[in-house]
Amino acid sequence: MTADVRVDDPAHPAPLAPLARLAHLRRSPLGHRAEEFEARSVPGPHGVRLREVPYLAQLNLRVDPASPAAARAGRVLGTPLPARAGRVAVTGGVRVLWLGPDEWLVVGPDGAAPAIERSLRQALDDEPGPAGAGASAVPPASVASVVDVSANRTTLELSGPSARSVLEQGCSLDLHPRAFGPGKCVQTTVSKVQVVLDQLDAEPSYRLLVRGSFAQYLADWLLDAMEEYRRGDA
């Protein structure tokens, strides 16, 4: 089993194939509860649905937003990095979430992480730092990094007419359309759990990116909060 797993050697980067062959072994934090989520989702005009979207590619990008490298990273991604707090840029299947004044989370489909990471590293290449170490003799004006953090969080998708109402039971932020909506994201707490909350559309549907070790608790809390909306349709 371990014969294909090689120790990282910078001179001979390990091929991706062995990892891909192990893909059937991976377990998402909530994979075993998919049927339960389906059964406890509430249909109807006041309904709300919960499902896990496992294995999304997530890359943490840090770069000075005023630097040429940030502009190049934007061109590689197909959209400028969102400059304003709590904004999301959408390009193809990739969403670029603002996390901080020099920090973004690039969220893409399962399996896209290596390709996105490679192209971002090339884009950042003349910036000194982890992503472009040694590429330039110029004294560092800024540093940049791109790190694959896909395994850090799993994603819960909460959607349906009552989705906002469910979230509001555990989140003190104003999620009303006058203050929040598609194209916006926040890092906050939902029922005391840190999440990255990203609104996908106006239905509304939301993505909650949550650490794997908190996912069970958050899912339990959401299912409990969804329960009361079943009554109206019974």
Binding site: L99, P101, E103, Q187, T188, T189, Q194
Partner: peptide
């Protein structure tokens, strides 16, 4: 000093 731990971490 304060740090926005659950948000932008600044």
């Amino acid at each position: 000093r304060w740090v926005h731990t659950a948000g932008c971490r600044r």
